[in-house]
């Protein structure tokens, strides 16, 4: 499947995966991430059962302290 992550096209051999799968593949282990799929916010508690499908546009914002 091909998805867009932060505006960049990325291809994966899988037909579909969960948000948690995607984070593992991208080696994202950050404690605070904002995730949107096609503009819809994904709650932290739903990463394991929210699907990422072909054609989805995924936003991943890694939040770190400082201001």
């Amino acid at each position: 499947m091909t998805i867009s992550v932060n505006g960049e096209s990325e291809s994966y051999p899988e037909d579909g995966m969960t948000v948690s799968d995607l984070l593992r593949k991208k080696r994202y282990s950050f404690p605070l991430i904002i995730i949107r799929i096609d503009g819809v916010l994904v709650a932290r508690a739903r990463y394991d059962d929210t699907a990422v499908r072909d054609g989805n546009s995924v936003d991943l914002y890694h939040l770190v302290s400082g201001g």
């Binding site: 932060n6 505006g7 904002i34 949107r36 503009g39 546009s57 936003d59 914002y61 890694h62 770190v64 400082g66």
Partner: peptide, 13 residues
């Protein structure tokens, strides 16, 4: 990073 009504500035790391 810009997407819809969200924009995030910085190096994100």
């Amino acid at each position: 990073l810009r997407s819809g009504r969200v924009r995030v500035v910085g190096d994100l790391e």
